[in-house]
């Protein structure tokens, strides 16, 4: 399976057929600030993620992981380079098209959960459907079904403050899934959780979220969850340094 012996940056078994790719980035660059104070967060990222793959992005703090998934998720515009997600060409997308693209295609899971504190678990999980124009009642009903699937069907009416961290992250996962997006991006989904809870959340993500139609890109520091990945890309200083099939192959 592994082609780690190849010298190219992009190792691992990325599909050669473009139709099999969920994400394809070439030469993506992104800087913050202007002129002298400009920080280059991405310095030409080439990345291919297969459909139906659980793909991890790892690397030291500040290397640009969050910036990269923000570009892929369409919440940040790159300065240069091209980026395709399924059939969507992010480079040539107008602002309002990106909003629509996010609403339809992307599920988000954050380190800080980011649930709306005034809404119940079911209402939170229903949010993406409501944003996509589904009636509230219908949306909450569907969200409750997903909450049952992620194992907190009995807490649909609880407010986030009444839930544990692990439970809140399950609500967030339900929210990322409810509108059946084709790409879910997760930034440090387990870092706020203890190891065991984190491992359960990852199991859940892999079992419920992943299928051949849906791709997961997960940014993490947490080496203990590396084993859940199909492939891992190691970033450093705004570039992808290495893509591997198993954690043992990582150079650092």
């Amino acid at each position: 399976m592994s082609n780690q012996t190849e010298p190219a940056v992009n190792v691992g078994n990325a599909a050669t057929n473009a139709a099999e790719l969920a994400v394809k980035c070439s030469g993506v660059a992104k800087g913050y600030g202007v002129d002298d104070s400009k920080i280059m967060a991405l310095r030409g990222v080439d990345l291919e993620v297969n459909k139906g793959e659980l793909f991890m992005l790892v690397g030291p703090s500040g290397c640009g992981k969050t910036t990269l998934i923000s570009v892929i998720a369409g919440i940040l515009d790159q300065d240069a380079g091209s980026c395709r997600v399924y059939e969507h060409d992010l480079l040539h997308m107008a602002g309002h098209e990106k909003v629509r693209y996010r609403a339809r295609n992307i599920g988000f899971v954050f380190q800080a959960y980011n649930l709306l504190p005034a809404l119940t678990a079911a209402e939170n999980a229903a949010m993406p459907l409501i944003i996509n124009g589904v009636k509230r009642k219908e949306a909450v009903k569907r969200a409750s079904e997903i909450l049952a699937e992620v194992g907190i069907g009995d807490r649909t009416n609880a407010l986030p403050a009444q839930l544990s961290g692990g439970q809140q992250q399950r609500v967030a996962i339900a929210r990322a899934l409810v509108h059946n997006p084709r790409l879910i991006v997760c930034d440090e989904p387990t870092s706020a959780l203890d190891h065991e809870t984190g491992a359960r959340v990852m199991e859940l993500l892999k079992r419920v979220a992943l299928d051949h139609q849906r791709t997961l890109v997960i940014v993490t520091h947490d080496a203990r969850i590396f084993s859940f990945a199909d492939r891992i890309a190691r970033m450093d200083d705004g570039r992808i340094e290495q893509v591997v099939n198993s954690p043992a192959q990582l150079e650092h």
Binding site: R100, A103, I106, M127
Partner: peptide, 16 residues
């Protein structure tokens, strides 16, 4: 603001 940011990220339009 963070809540508005989350809604925005999830695809809520400025009009909404």
């Amino acid at each position: 603001l963070r809540q508005f940011g989350v809604l925005k990220a999830m695809g809520t339009t400025n009009g909404q």
